[in-house]
């Protein structure tokens, strides 16, 4: 067995274990922490695949800010655990069975039959995924989508503020809310 494959096997094992742990943890805090480790491990895979920029963004944005946001909300709401009992008996079993069937289908027909088990990934070119290349592409060819994502983020920010402002201002529309603030 090649060293590369041993490394991949190890990383893959960690990814699967953390993912399963995230799903089965009783406490939401644990789930969040499992997800952070999962994201970090996936970032390693990105590095192996020659995408250092994405790997860094994955760690800083996902594992960093987004998961911190999750933790904030969990703690803010105090919703680590749910009190009520499961109402949908059989949902869990059915979900697992369907999930396994789905996985088998994906593996058989998406990966095995398509012949991807024998085609190797070519070794990444040193500069292919370099931050310079990504930056050039983002600011030249994909400049417009880039700007649009910026706008989406802005709208999402405004929306999040409006939604969490509480009951009284939430009944007013955005413009009055803003003008009140300015006034």
């Amino acid at each position: 067995m090649l060293p590369g494959e041993i490394l991949f096997g190890f990383i893959g094992l960690v990814v699967v274990i953390t993912a399963v742990g995230m799903v089965i943890s009783r406490n939401a805090i644990y789930s969040a922490l499992f997800l952070v480790s999962n994201f970090t491990t996936v970032a390693l895979l990105y590095l192996i695949l020659g995408a250092p920029f994405i790997a860094v963004v994955q760690i800083s944005v996902y594992a960093g800010s987004i998961m911190v946001l999750f933790l904030f909300v969990i703690m803010l709401l105090g919703a680590e655990r749910l009190a009520a009992k499961e109402k949908l008996q059989g949902q869990r079993l059915l979900a697992v069975i369907l999930g396994v069937v789905f996985l088998v289908e994906l593996g058989l027909f998406g990966v095995w039959k398509a012949g991807y088990m024998t085609t190797p990934v070519p070794p990444a070119a040193a500069t292919a995924g370099a931050p310079e290349a990504v930056g050039m592409a983002l600011f030249t060819q994909y400049a417009l989508p880039f700007e649009v994502t910026g706008f989406i983020l802005l709208v999402a920010t405004v929306g999040a503020i409006l939604l969490t402002r509480g009951d009284k201002p939430a009944s007013k529309d955005l413009i009055t809310a803003v003008s009140e603030k300015e006034g």
């Binding site: 990814v15 999750f70 979900a95 999930g99 996985l103 994906l106």
Partner: peptide, 28 residues
Amino acid sequence: MPLGYYLALSAVMFVIGIVGVLVRRNAL
């Protein structure tokens, strides 16, 4: 390293995600 390894890993992650959506009641 065959391409299929990565694809299989991705599929496993995806299915675990689906099962998580289906079995957990905690919205977070």
